[in-house]
Every structure is written in structure tokens, then in C-alpha cells.
Computed example of a mutant assay.
Amino acid sequence: MSPTRRSARRPLARRRVPRAAALALLLVSATACSADEWSRGGLPGAITKQAETVQNLWNGSWIAALATGVVVWGLILWSVAFHRKKKNSKDELPPQVRYNLPIEILYTVVPIIMVGVFFYFTARDQNYVNAMTGQAPVKVKVEGFQWSWRFTTDYNGKKVEVVGKPVSDYTQGPQLVLPVNQKVEFDLVSPDVIHSFWVPAFHFKRDVIPGVENKFEVDTLNKPAVYAGRCAELCGTDHSRMLFNVKLVPQAEFDQYIASQAGAQ
């Protein structure tokens, strides 16, 4: 092999090394997630029945989107493979096909059906997530203020109030204790600016607006643990420090908590 050819191949080989390394890094990153994380599509684990509904809608949306993508990519690759210009052909366009009525009906009707189905499931699940029964045994008044939270839990006529302050770690913020397997009603109020009450494990957030009393209900699952919460609306200087946590506990522990803390603040 001549020196000229060797020198020409060296830059090409050098370019391939970073590309191969980047591909290897991508593959390692893609396989770092567990099967459970992949099944959730990047969402945190659900801790309410409403969150499970949102999770199912999310998964279904991704499946539909990927199925559509596979069909579109397949058609593109098929066109590239079987309708490319032949090596020995002249500079003439391939045969042009116009006004194929069955195909035009297909690519008009199918998207309409897909959008209709997606709209139906979205509206159905949205109605379920927003439903209010007014019969929740546990009621929590959530007051978002610059820049922390006040939680007032009302259960069997006893009230427990927790007031927080700006913190840098959600574990140090005010803690909202809730029982597992119970329906909980949240009443959201604010005395100053718009905040947003967000517990990622709820797969749900709702704005806390001055002069507006927003409400929602959840049915907690039997998953005792401590979960992060934060404000999701830019509300001022210490917005990033409006952190809190939600602790799900067994019913017996919740009863003991209410009995020991009621009126203590």
C-alpha cells in the first residue's frame, strides 16, 4: 500500500473512534435503566390510583406513537430501497402516481380514527382524575406562600398543622403525613402569588392561586415511604427551595400521629 493511501485512511480511522465511543456510551446509558423504569416510561412509581390511570394513559400514548413511527419509518425505507434511482438509468423521473383514491382515503381516515381514540381515553381519564366525591375521610388544606407550605390535616375532627420554611433538601422540608389505602381531599389556597402543588409520585400537579380555592382527590395506595414534593410554578426568589415531602404510613401509625400531634402546634 502506498504512503499516500495510508495517510488518507488515517483521518478516516480517527473519525471513527469517537463515533464508536459515543455509540458505546449511548448503549451503556440506554441499558442502565431497569425493566421497571422502562415499563413506566420515565415516570416515577405511582402511589395513588389516579396516578396509575395517568401511567396507563402515558404508556398507551407511547405505544401508539411508536407503532405509528414504525409504519412511517417502514414506508420511508421501503421507498428508498425500491424506488431509488438505478445506476444505469437516465436523468428521468420515476413513474409518477397521482390521485390514488384508496391510499388518500387511508391516510385521511386512519389519523382521524387515531386522534378520536386518543381523545376518548384522554377525556375519560381526565374526568376520573378530576372527580370529586366530597366524601374523603382525610382532608388537607394546603397553603402555599412565599416560600414554603402550611399543611392542615383534618381527620375525625382533629387537626394537625405543619408549617415549613425554605430548604435545600426535600427531606428537611415540611412533612405531610397521610395514611395508605385512604381517600384524601386537598384544598389549595395562597395568600400571595401563584404556586403549584406537585408531588411527582402523584403524576399530578395543580396550581395554588390567590382568591381561587382549587381542589382534588386521590386514593392512596399501600406503598409506605417518603416522597418528594415541590412547587412547580416560578413564584419568586426562593421558588427552588419550596420543597416538602409526603410520608405514607399504615393506618395505625397515622391514627397515632393524629392523636399525638393534634393541637400540639
Score class of each variant (00 low, 15 high):
V115L: 11
E143N: 05
V160H: 07
P200F: 05
G116A: 12
T171F: 11
T153C: 02
D238H: 11
R124C: 02
A201C: 02
Q251N: 13
T122L: 13
C231F: 04
P200M: 09
W149Q: 06
Q146V: 05
S196K: 10
V249K: 04
E161R: 15
I112A: 15
D238Q: 15
P166K: 04
L243P: 08
V162I: 12
N222S: 09
G211N: 12
G229T: 01
V115T: 11
W198D: 10
E213P: 00
Q182D: 11
V140I: 05
Q146P: 00
L188R: 02
N130L: 12
V115I: 14
K139G: 00
G211E: 05
N130H: 07
Y128V: 15
D192T: 08
D169T: 01
P179W: 05
A252C: 03
E185V: 04
K215E: 00
I194A: 11
F121T: 15
T237C: 10
V142E: 08
W149T: 06
L106Q: 07
G236W: 06
N156H: 14
V208N: 05
V117I: 14
T220D: 03
V212I: 12
K159L: 07
T237H: 10
V160Q: 02
P111I: 08
T108I: 10
F204G: 01
N222L: 01
V226Y: 10
T122F: 13
S148P: 02
M242G: 13
I209K: 13
